[in-house]
Design a binder for these strands. Sequence first.
DNA 1: ACCTGAACACCGTTCAAGT
DNA 2: ACCTGAACACCGTTCAAGT
Lengths: 222, 222
Amino acid sequence: MSAYVNVVNINGVGTVSAVQGENYHHGDLRRALIDAALAALAENGPGTLSLRGLARAAGVSATAVYRHFANKEDLLAAIATEGFEGLSASMQQRLEREPGAGRLRRLVILGEGYVDYAIAHPAHYRLMFGPRMLARGEYPALAAAAAHSYGMLEQAVSDAITAGELPAMPEPVLSTLFWSWVHGLAMLNNDGLLARSDLPGTNELSHDFGELLANALNQFRE
Amino acid sequence: MSAYVNVVNINGVGTVSAVQGENYHHGDLRRALIDAALAALAENGPGTLSLRGLARAAGVSATAVYRHFANKEDLLAAIATEGFEGLSASMQQRLEREPGAGRLRRLVILGEGYVDYAIAHPAHYRLMFGPRMLARGEYPALAAAAAHSYGMLEQAVSDAITAGELPAMPEPVLSTLFWSWVHGLAMLNNDGLLARSDLPGTNELSHDFGELLANALNQFRE
DNA sequence: ACCTGAACACCGTTCAAGT
DNA sequence: ACCTGAACACCGTTCAAGT
């Protein structure tokens, strides 16, 4: 978790005040609560997240939470937002590791970065797509972060179509196909359903499937 | 929900006793609790399921539940088991509607039946893959029902490979690819993320994707 | 064998009050 | 501006008791 938290911490860390550490006026309770939630998600699964428990972990009364979040769903939305930021960062890092990649190869790399992140943060990833997040419209920052992640996939698909490396189908349809596949693979892995002796590891599956799908689509084009 | 409930109800209905309708000795409280849960899942989403609420709906005290289920997870496992039975039934029904279909076509039909069921019962389907169901090993009936659903996909993939209508890759890898795709498509749909003006309906997407993927894989084979 | 009622240790959330 | 404490309406679960 640590590396990714450092990435998304940038905005919060600067606002820590001088009185941090005292009981009264916590400094950055909002950040402390989110960090406590991320730690709890990483250690136990989701579902065990309670506002009262997070308040305890932050050394603060249960009702102090409501100074920083409207309710539990509001806190979960903030966590989900950071999740999509981490997802985008994971995809971006993978792209930059292989600068000269072709259009289609870039799409495969994005998929690997996507699955990498999802299986490295299973509880966090599940929360990002959990039932509580259905009302995404009420959380503009969450909607924007999710749209950015999806936009990266869309751009790569669009580029590959333009370059003639994918069949000339509508971009939204191909993007949805690709997204369904990485999302499904990540979810099944995080449910423990891919831990079978007759399957390679999910990281390798991700790579194999990416190559397979991309090449297959490429052949299909004519 | 009704049609599918009738299918899976067979075992329960026969045990309804003569005193059904009285307060004391409910008749088949176990079945009544499951049905109340299915109704609650269909009406509200998941997450709102409470044992006490189900007991209220069945007209019984909160603690009566524990005469029929060890705990909440045990009830959820029973519901998830019926879900996989419904999933298998949905796939089977689709197959029987098109008896003369070829090997590859049968696989596509299975995928359509799978997605059909998943998007017709979103809350139920989510529960089947929810975080609570990770300990599937502790519920043999659940594990068996899930294995049967997955086995239908595996059989169709295996047959298509044998018939030379899919690339000669390991069956588990191709099955996982296919499963990831239908699962991801269903989950994204049920999260409301495919309700976009630039996309066709999910039923049509399911059909398009099946044809695309099957044909693409078929081309890739040589 | 099947169900009830009281009780325990939790929740999320509200509201008045403290500094 | 930020936090606390008491209170309310819920949970899941246990245990002794009722028929």
